[in-house]
């Protein structure tokens, strides 16, 4: 279970303080598929970064399975990101010098798994997202939809409980977007918690629950 308690994040942009999140209290149950929607600047991505342990709150707390992530060291946070969470970005964020297989294997590499085992696991993930014929392709040789599927395979490579998508369909066409949502639904059916940020109402409609954000607050 993921819970935020009075989660607040303040950014400093020069002299101006920007309140990205204000006292957000949100509970996400294990195995839930939740979509967070809202206009840009409403704090959706900031919230995802907090839940995904990429950033630390100014005040308040994020608890993942009752562990207060704010109290963890950098290394412990890296471990949570690696083992518990799979992150999917709008811009795919693949490493362009590595091919699909190596990109997917990267988180397993950081986990210290042996090469053979690692590549086998990575290959399985690529097969799972339907890219068995793109294994040795570089990101630049693939379409946006394919790249995003590689990114999903990468997010799944350490078998995380939670998959977080920051506008995962934002940079692909409708068809590819639907394919991506199909995959995410499948992951949800496997029992994984799926959290996506989107401003596409159709995409949001496929989630089990939708939360709307505005001005750093979650609306009820």
């Amino acid at each position: 279970m993921i819970r935020t308690e009075n989660l607040t994040k303040v950014y400093r942009m020069g002299e101006v303080e920007v309140q990205a999140l204000r006292d957000v209290n949100l509970e996400i149950q294990d195995g839930e598929f939740i979509a967070i929607i809202g206009p840009s600047g409403s704090g959706k991505s900031t919230l995802l970064n907090m839940i995904g342990c990429l950033d630390k709150p100014t005040s308040g707390a994020v608890l993942i399975d009752d562990i207060n992530t704010g109290k963890l060291s950098e290394n412990e946070l890296a471990e949570i990101r690696r083992e518990k969470i799979g992150f999917i970005f709008q811009q795919f964020n693949l490493i362009h010098t590595l091919n699909a297989l190596e990109n997917v294997a990267l988180p397993i590499f950081f986990a210290g798994v042996r090469r053979e085992k690692r590549l086998k696991r990575a290959e399985e993930q690529l097969v799972k997202v339907g890219l068995e014929d793109r294994i040795y392709h570089k990101p630049s040789e693939m379409s946006g939809g394919e790249q995003q599927r590689v990114a999903i395979a990468r997010a799944l490579s350490n078998d995380p409980e939670i998959v977080i998508g920051d506008e995962p369909t934002g940079n692909v066409d409708t068809e590819a977007g639907n394919a991506i949502m199909d995959i995410l639904e499948g992951l949800n059916r496997e029992g994984r918690t799926i959290i996506v940020v989107t401003h596409d109402a159709d995409i949001a409609a496929r989630a089990g629950r939708t939360k709307r954000m505005r001005d750093g607050k979650v609306l009820d």
Binding site: L54, N75, A78
Partner: peptide, 16 residues
Amino acid sequence: THEIGVMKAIGAKSRD
């Protein structure tokens, strides 16, 4: 920088 950020986001430690 971007690549380093991605690596850290998917679980690389500072040491890595």
